[in-house]
C-alpha cells in the first residue's frame, strides 16, 4: 500500500538490525539477509529506509526470468536486492549483508557448463578453419 505514507518506526528498527548484522560481518565474516517483502512496511517506511541506506558505488541490473536490480548502499557490505516478477511487480526484496550477493556471482555449475560450451564452440571453429 504505497499510497499510505505513515511511519511505523519499522525503518529505524531495520537500520539497527542491519547495523548489528554489518558489525557481525566485519568481525566474523558471517553473512545475513533481511526479507523486506514479509515485513509490514508502509510506503513511508520504505522511503525512509531507502534514503537512510542511500546508494553506493555498485549497481547492477540483469534479466533472469524477469528483471532484477541490485545495488550496494552507501554502507559497504550492505546490498539492496530486488527481483521483479510478472508485470513488473516486486516478487522478492531483501537487504543482504555480505561482501557480494550470491545472485551476482556466477554459479560453479553455470561456469562448468559455459566452460564446456566455450570449448565446444572453439573446437567447432577450429575444425571449420581447418577445413578451409
Amino acid at each position: 500500500m504505497s499510497e499510505e505514507s505513515p511511519r511505523t518506526g519499522m525503518a529505524q528498527s531495520l537500520l539497527r538490525e542491519i547495523a548489528r548484522a554489518l558489525a557481525a560481518l566485519a568481525e566474523t565474516g558471517a553473512c545475513d539477509a533481511i526479507d523486506l517483502r514479509s515485513l509490514p512496511l508502509t510506503g513511508g517506511d520504505r522511503a525512509d529506509l531507502e534514503t537512510a541506506l542511500g546508494r553506493g558505488e555498485v549497481a547492477a541490473t540483469f534479466d533472469a526470468s524477469g528483471q532484477s536490480e541490485v545495488w550496494e548502499t552507501r554502507h559497504a557490505g550492505v546490498w539492496w536486492v530486488r527481483h521483479l516478477g510478472g508485470d513488473g511487480r516486486v516478487a522478492a526484496e531483501t537487504i543482504e549483508i555480505t561482501p557480494i550477493p550470491d545472485i551476482l556471482a556466477a554459479h560453479p555449475d553455470d561456469i562448468r557448463a559455459s566452460a564446456a560450451a566455450l570449448m565446444a564452440e572453439l573446437a567447432e571453429t577450429t575444425e571449420e578453419t581447418a577445413h578451409v
Binding site: 553473512c31 545475513d32 539477509a33 533481511i34 526479507d35 517483502r37 514479509s38 540483469f62 533472469a64 526470468s65 524477469g66 532484477s68 536486492v81 527481483h83 516478477g85 516478487a91 522478492a92 531483501t94 543482504e96 550470491d102 545472485i103 556466477a106 554459479h107 555449475d109 553455470d110
Partner: peptide
C-alpha cells in the same frame, strides 16, 4: 542460468516465511 533458480528460491523463501539465507 542458476541465477533464475536462486531468484526463485529467494521468492519461495519469502512466501514460505523461511529465513532469506
Amino acid at each position: 542460468s542458476r541465477r533464475s533458480l536462486l531468484k526463485y528460491t529467494g521468492y519461495l523463501a519469502s512466501i514460505l516465511a523461511l529465513p532469506p539465507m
